[in-house]
Structures are given as C-alpha cells and as structure tokens.
Design a protein around this nucleic acid. Sequence first.
DNA 1: TAAAATTAAATGTAATTACATTAAATACAA
DNA 2: TTGTATTTAATGTAATTACATTTAATTTTA
Lengths: 154, 154
Amino acid sequence: MGISEDLKQSKFPSEASKAVVNAIYTGNWIMQKQQELLKPFSLTVQQYNVLRILRGQQGNPMTVLAITERMLDKMSNASRLVDKLVEKKLVLRRECPKDRRAVDILILPAGLDILSQVDQVQDDWGKHFDALGVKKLEEMNQILDEFRTVFSHN
Amino acid sequence: MGISEDLKQSKFPSEASKAVVNAIYTGNWIMQKQQELLKPFSLTVQQYNVLRILRGQQGNPMTVLAITERMLDKMSNASRLVDKLVEKKLVLRRECPKDRRAVDILILPAGLDILSQVDQVQDDWGKHFDALGVKKLEEMNQILDEFRTVFSHN
DNA sequence: TAAAATTAAATGTAATTACATTAAATACAA
DNA sequence: TTGTATTTAATGTAATTACATTTAATTTTA
C-alpha cells in the first residue's frame, strides 16, 4: 500500500512530484492520528506542541516569539494558542520584566501533568515505528532534511 | 540545517519520535510553500488539490465521495470545497442520474485553464527537487510508504 | 533628546475546518 | 411491500486559522 494506492492515483508526472505529494500526505496522516490521540485530552495538535515546547525549557519562561520559532506550523497564531492554554490553566502568562513588550509564558504543574498522561498514549503509539529499525529511521530523517535543504540553495 | 536546527531542539527521545516530528514539519513546510505559490490564483491548497483530482478524471464526473477518497487531507469537507469551486465557476455540480443521493462534479474549461497556469509555476518550483536525483527521491517515497505501512499491521 | 523605525504581542475579521446532525435516496430484510 | 438500516451530501455551529491592522514598548537615528 504505497501512496499510489492510498490516493488511487496510478501515475505521477515525476518522482519529485510524487515525493511532494507523499510528504504532504504523510504529514497529514500523522497529524490526524495525533489528533485522535489528543481528543480525550481536549487538546489540539498545535496546543500539544506548544505545551511540549514549554516543557522543553525546564521551568524557564519563553516569550511568544520564541515559541513561534519552535512551532511545527509557523503560520498558526501562538498568541491565541497560548490564550487557550491559559484558559485551561495549563500555562501562565506574565509580563516579561526585561522587555515589557514581550510576555513570558510558563508551563504550570497541570500542564506537565496532562503532558505526562498524553506521553503514555503517544509512546505506545510511537512504538509501532520501532519496527522500521533505527537505521531506516535515521535514513528517513536524513532524506527529509535534505529534501528541505535543496531549497535553501536558491 | 536539519530538523534539530529548524526547531532549535537539540535532542529527541528517539529516532522514531524525531521522524514523526520531521514528517509533520516537512509536510507543513511544503504546504506553506504551495500556499504562497497559489495565493496569486486565489486558490487554497485544498481547492487546488480537488481541481487536480478532477483533472485526473479526464472529463469524467466524480461524486463528492470519490473526491474525498483521493484528497490528501481526508478531514476537510469536500462538499464545501466544491462549493467554493462552483462559486468561482471552475467546476460544475449536477445531480448524478444513476444515484440521486450523489452529485456529479465536473471540471470546467476555466478550471483546466487556471490549473495549467498554476502548473507552470509549480513545475519551476518542483525542479529544485530534481537536484536530489531520482534514486534518492524513490528512496524517499519508499520510506514514507513504509512508515505509514507499519501501522496497518495492528 | 525627540522623532522615526522596529519589534512583540494582541486583536478584528473573514475564511476555513472540525464535528455533529440532518435530509434525502437507496439498499436490505422481514 | 414495508419498515429499518445504510449511504451520500449538505448544513449548523463552534473553534481555529489566515491575514492585516493596531497598540505599546524599545531601539535607532537625526
């Protein structure tokens, strides 16, 4: 079951255009899986990502801009995502003392707690991919990185 | 410039979780590029995809359900996407004579015309990836297919 | 210093998406 | 045949995203 069967499209104009479609399709495919996993926690994929980014700071605050830089989807509005997380009392928003234009965001214990619950489910889910073997996964990461990099040379 | 630098995340819990993030990130990255290319044509990525699917039918009509099966993002609402394309007079919607529940969608000359304009821009854009070489692109397609397939075995 | 430019975040809005429900037509089963 | 289940699309709505604009603070420049 390759991309051709999945999309019922027998031929592509080139291997490159197939790769473009395949990358989009695979990304969406994973996001949909994650969306399902996150539904019981009432978190969107984007909200989950912001929480993980904040956890990565190990207790240090981050500005909204710093969060944006690390987000998978740079287009989505970090300010409003943070809004939702503040509403849910998973993060704290406070004025940044060093620069009063900026805002410091901190993950709260409740945020860490929900993340660790999600982790359990995600870990089980992610285990399926171990079947591919580390070598192949490294290869995949290498190729995807290259794929994006060809573009920087333009 | 790999995924670590792009997301400023030095380490991942496993190669598999890195691959998951990398696939989502790469998919979003391509979609954003396409979004920019499509902006002058006032088409969203999803609308563009539906048009391409219809073109692939070479003049034959498709039902909304058949379109959904071929869409990259199965979640989005084909009925409303078609609405937008009808508004723009790029496709035609008519009752399916064989099954009056279903609706036949046909691409119009104006739709084919805008697609061929977009093609020119897209082809130029896609040429960047030829630098990777057919062999590596085939490898990429193979790996992405495998990545999704590990999951079917569950 | 004062004015202009830049930066960080928030906000207004229109469009799109997510999700559940509805409506209509067809298929199936008693 | 008739009632029930299923299938196909459309729709209502709330949430999210896209995009431009605004506000406030800081930095740069004259």
